[in-house]
Structure formats: structure tokens, C-alpha cells
């Protein structure tokens, strides 16, 4: 039996997850440097789930959901929060056991808690992706999403990736026994300068809530959406062969950046309440079309399993 030392802070939980998944052979990546709604949008998940190449990565991803902004007042709703994301392809047969090991690593004693895998089919209409899996419950609380990807960007996933997503604030609050996210210790409370989550993020939650709900310039955003959409399409309209280097360079990732951008702008517009129910579907469809184009492009790259021989 492992020794269950309780972690003391938010960051310790992140560090323990990093150490755990590193020990299980995952590449520990860094957050993607763009605004995304969830860890799944990181190209290390969306694009790497495509094609035949094996993959194993884990990373923290700051995620933004403008509609969830509550000016830092709600005990657990934030417009900016962290997800911890693990993607392993092909999904190993002992993925459930590996996952449970990660809960032990952050101080959840399996002998005292009730862990349940409750049906939850995952679908991302904007990414044209779906998978089957569960929400994982610990004593009635959802602590993770566990998904076997079946399709991304309209492509069947072969082999299948196993994806784990931890909502870090919620999980940490549970493990640390904190009721309001802003009161959660960010670093060790015994540190010379102890910082709470609120010390780090209360002000930004206020600023972004005001911005997202009232100040974001919707006309500009609508234009940016169109720009990103056109840019994505234009990047992918280039020939695969780069005239300057003579190499085959399909620009899947730069195009995908524009898809991410369009998706985030859509979320902002949604938070501003300027998108009607019917338009909403149309916007989602436009982002999905971009995601599909990027997926089509990625499988034409080396990382996406393309090889000149197999294509010939």
C-alpha cells in the first residue's frame, strides 16, 4: 500500500500528476500558447489523435469559457481554469488502472473512497469528434472525463486514443477540502509568501468577466472570426510542396491555429449573447468545417502517419 500523504496546495497536485504520468512514460508537454476552451483543443490531442503513429503525452492546459465568468464570486465557476490532459495512443489495456494510480498519486486513498465509472459519451460538435467513456466519480463527485476517441475531425481514429481530462480546480478543492476556489492555497501555505488561488486569479476573473460580458467589441470579433476562417482555408490551399525548400510541407498546424482562434472567438461572441439559437448551429458548423480541413491536412503529414512510400 502506498503512503497517502495529502498534498498541501494546488500546485502540488499538478506537480504530482506531472511526476506520475512522466513515470508512466508520457511526454510532459507544456500548455499550448493560444486561447482554447478545453485541453482537447491542444494540437497534442486533437491532431495527434489522428493517424497511425503512437503517442503519449500529458500536459496542463489553461482553458477559457467566457460564459462561465462570475467575477470571481462563484465558489467553483471560472472563465479561466486549468485542465490536466493525458492522451495515449493506442489506448493501453490497463488505462483504467493507470488512471486510478494517478488518483492515488494525488492523495486519494482507494480503500476509503468510492470510485465509479458512470456512462458519459463525449462529443465535440466544433471538432467533429466523439468518443465513448465515462465521467469518473469519486464519492459522487465528477473528478475526470475518460474517453476512448472514435472520431476526430470526421476521421475514424485508428488506432484509438485514450484521453483523460481532469478539471484541476475542482479536483484540487476536493482533495484539499476547500469550499471556495479563491481560498485554495496555490503554493505551500507554509511558504514565506503563501499565495491563494484568489491572490493569483481573483482580479483577472473580475477583469475578464467584465470584458467578456460587456466590453468585448462584437463587431470586431465577428470580423476576426471571418478572418480566421479565411486564413485557415487559405493556408491549406497551398500546394504540399514548398517552392522555396522543395520539401513537402503541409501547413496543418498553422491552419489549425486559425481554427482554434475561430473557436475561441465564437465562444466570446456566445458569451456576449449576440448569437441566436439558429445562428449558433451555423457557427459551430463553420468551426467544424475548419477542424475537418485541418484533420484532412494533418493526416497528409509525417506526424499524421503519411509516408511518401505508402502514398505512392
Amino acid at each position: 500500500m502506498a503512503e497517502f500523504t495529502k498534498p498541501k496546495s494546488f500546485q502540488e497536485i499538478i506537480l504530482r500528476l506531472q511526476t506520475y504520468w512522466a513515470s508512466k512514460g508520457c511526454a510532459i508537454l507544456q500548455p499550448y500558447d493560444m486561447e482554447v476552451g478545453a485541453g482537447t483543443f491542444h494540437p497534442a490531442t486533437t491532431l495527434r489523435a489522428l493517424g497511425s503513429n503512437a503517442w503519449a503525452a500529458a500536459y496542463v492546459q489553461p482553458s477559457r469559457r467566457p460564459t462561465d465568468g462570475r467575477y470571481g464570486e462563484n465558489p467553483n465557476r471560472l472563465q479561466h481554469y486549468y485542465q490536466y490532459q493525458v492522451l495515449i495512443k493506442p489506448s493501453p489495456p490497463d488505462l483504467q488502472a493507470l488512471y486510478l494510480g494517478s488518483l492515488e498519486a494525488i492523495g486519494i486513498d482507494m480503500a476509503l473512497h468510492d470510485i465509479r465509472f458512470v456512462e458519459d459519451d463525449w462529443e465535440s460538435p466544433t471538432l467533429g469528434a466523439w468518443g465513448l467513456g465515462w465521467e469518473v466519480w469519486c464519492d459522487g463527485m465528477e473528478v475526470s472525463q475518460f474517453t476512448y476517441f472514435q472520431q476526430v475531425g470526421g476521421h475514424d481514429c485508428r488506432p484509438v486514443s485514450g484521453e483523460l481530462t481532469y478539471g484541476l480546480e475542482r479536483l484540487a478543492m476536493y482533495v484539499l477540502g476547500i469550499d471556495h476556489v479563491m481560498e485554495m492555497p496555490f503554493n505551500d501555505p507554509q511558504s514565506p509568501i503563501p499565495l491563494s488561488y484568489g491572490d493569483v486569479f481573483r482580479q483577472t476573473e473580475e477583469e475578464y468577466s467584465r470584458h467578456n460580458f460587456d466590453a468585448a467589441d462584437t463587431e470586431k470579433l465577428l470580423r476576426h472570426f471571418e478572418d480566421a476562417e479565411r486564413e485557415c482555408q487559405s493556408i491549406l490551399s497551398h500546394e504540399a510542396e514548398d517552392p522555396k525548400t522543395g520539401k513537402r510541407i503541409v501547413m496543418a498546424h498553422p491552419a489549425y491555429d486559425q481554427c482554434i482562434k475561430a473557436s475561441h472567438i465564437f465562444n466570446l461572441l456566445d458569451a456576449r449573447g449576440v448569437i441566436s439559437v439558429t445562428e449558433r448551429q451555423a457557427y459551430i458548423g463553420r468551426v467544424r468545417a475548419l477542424a475537418k480541413l485541418c484533420a484532412d491536412a494533418f493526416v497528409q503529414t509525417e506526424a499524421g502517419g503519411f509516408s511518401a512510400e505508402s502514398a505512392a
Partner: peptide
Amino acid sequence: KSMRWGAGS
């Protein structure tokens, strides 16, 4: 609804 997993079919 059914699914594939790992590298199998």
C-alpha cells in the same frame, strides 16, 4: 453504441 479500443478493430 459500441466502440473500438487500442489498435484492434
